[in-house]
């Protein structure tokens, strides 16, 4: 499965557009991480716990989007975009969406 935020893949023609596919997730870190992040706010620096949280969320939303793409029979997702929002304090919501397409060739 090819994932790209390009509109077109150089050298390969889009045979079929299969519409919008999306994946989203809301995740939170446990209290210990939240407390450490609070402490980090005093000293500054990277909040590793939350970076990890964003990575996990991004991977999960991507894999959900790919699952949708597979379900509709696509072999690539183009024009992928991410958006984040904070629904609840200390939780990250990550949303990925793109166009499921069938590309020519393998």
């Amino acid at each position: 499965m090819l994932v790209s935020n390009l509109e077109i893949v150089p050298g390969r023609r889009v045979l079929k557009h299969l519409g919008l596919v999306q994946g989203s997730t809301v995740r939170a870190k446990h209290v210990g991480r939240d407390l450490m992040a609070g402490l980090k706010n005093i000293f500054g620096g990277e909040l590793r716990g939350y970076t990890e949280l964003l990575n996990e969320s991004r991977e999960e939303s991507l894999s959900r989007m790919l699952e949708e793409a597979r379900a509709v029979g696509a072999n690539a997702v183009l024009n992928v975009r991410f958006s984040t929002s904070s629904v609840a304090q200390g939780a990250a919501e990550l949303f990925a969406y793109g166009t499921a397409v069938v590309l020519e060739g393998e």
């Binding site: 889009v14 045979l15 079929k16 557009h17 299969l18 519409g19 596919v21 999306q22 994946g23 989203s24 997730t25 959900r64 699952e67 949708e68 379900a71 509709v72 029979g73």
Partner: peptide
């Protein structure tokens, strides 16, 4: 170019 909107199964994002 073909355009199509196949049905997406439930329960992927939930």
């Amino acid at each position: 170019m073909q355009y199509e909107n196949p049905e997406i199964p439930e329960g992927i994002n939930v």
